[in-house]
Computed example of a mutant assay.
Amino acid sequence: MVLLILFLLGLAAGFYLATYVAPYAIIQPPRKVRQETPATYGLAYEPTRLTTADGTALDAFYIPATVPARSNLIMLHGVGSCKEVYLGTVAELTALGYNVLLWDQRAHGKSGGQYLSYGYREKEDVSLAIDWLEAKSPGLPTGIYGNSMGGAVALQSLAHDGRLRFGLIESTFQDLQTVTHAYGRRMSGLPLPRWLTNYVLDQAGKIADFPPRSIQPLLSARAITQPVLLIHGDTDRNIGIENAHALFAALASADKELYTVQNGDHADLWDKGGEPYRDAWFGFLKRMVATNGIAE
């Protein structure tokens, strides 16, 4: 009887955690707020707020090119991060002729929004940003960079909005169900079954009001014809390298490349990749700013 009671209590506790606790870890990450601005790095900039169709205010920086502008670049961070993490690379990008726009994604940093949706709403935010850039710099093409979740949003945006001319995608996943299962197993240290992590994901979708099983960058890749560079670490413990291989195979782009960082994990590619990684990263963007330069 005691064992039965303990078993039932364990089941009840597990149900409570799976239904009312774990889903929030998926859709409501801790907010990282940093106070640096582009001025910290000696760059002129325009602070702005992008207001989405549902009234969410996205806190953004617009940093104009320091040479004659040839292209726009949108930069998207990953889960639990913020726009300021990219400020160290912006000076080199503006010197190449990029106007750079970066913002705290929904439910991150200084932006509004209670929950994120892994691209379901965020791809519309990207389209809003393109509208803003086209009004700011008529005639200039726009590309996109995204890391981790930002990469998943970028892939969905490339398929959703043909105004995006190219994408640099780092360390991202092929579908939300698969990555949720992998994260659940790694973080719990338990061999959680797929049905359980799917249940938690579905509960997260109900709370945040979006269909999480529709988040499938792999399907988006099949509709992408723009040039794409995928970058992934071959020892990524968060999002395995097999995700990059699947995405690369699915891309419909004639101009596509997969660059693998040897011994690279999820968040150390700049350190582990060294100069060859920098050459691949900036080399692609140099080529794109030349290819997609001043519009006729």
Rank of each mutant, 00 (worst) to 15 (best):
P138M: 05
R222K: 13
G88H: 00
A152D: 08
L258P: 07
W281I: 03
L247G: 11
G233E: 02
L190V: 12
A57H: 10
V261P: 07
R287S: 12
G233Q: 10
L73M: 11
A22M: 15
L11E: 00
G273R: 08
L196S: 04
L164G: 02
E257R: 03
L269A: 05
I207F: 11
V153Y: 07
T89V: 12
D271V: 12
D234K: 02
A57M: 09
V33F: 12
L190Y: 13
L133R: 00
G97T: 06
L43C: 05
T94C: 06
L102K: 02
G80P: 13
P38G: 10
T48L: 14
M75L: 14
K256V: 01
Q28E: 14
V2A: 11
K286Y: 01
Q216F: 11
L43K: 10
V79L: 13
S148L: 11
G139F: 02
A129K: 03
L258N: 07
E257D: 06
F61M: 00
R106T: 08
E275S: 08
D255N: 15
E122L: 06
I294M: 12
G167S: 08
A221H: 07
L4S: 13
Y145C: 09
G151M: 11
D104T: 04
D265Y: 03
A246T: 05
P212S: 05
A152H: 06
W281D: 08
D161F: 05
D54Q: 07
I294H: 09
E275V: 13
P29K: 11
L96Q: 11
G205N: 09
P64G: 03
D161C: 07
R165I: 01
V289Q: 08
R165A: 13
D131T: 05
S171N: 14
G162Q: 11
V289N: 00
N198S: 13
W195K: 00
H160I: 09
K110M: 03
V2E: 06
T52P: 04
W195D: 08
K256C: 04
F282G: 01
H77L: 02
Y16D: 05
I5M: 15
Y259L: 04
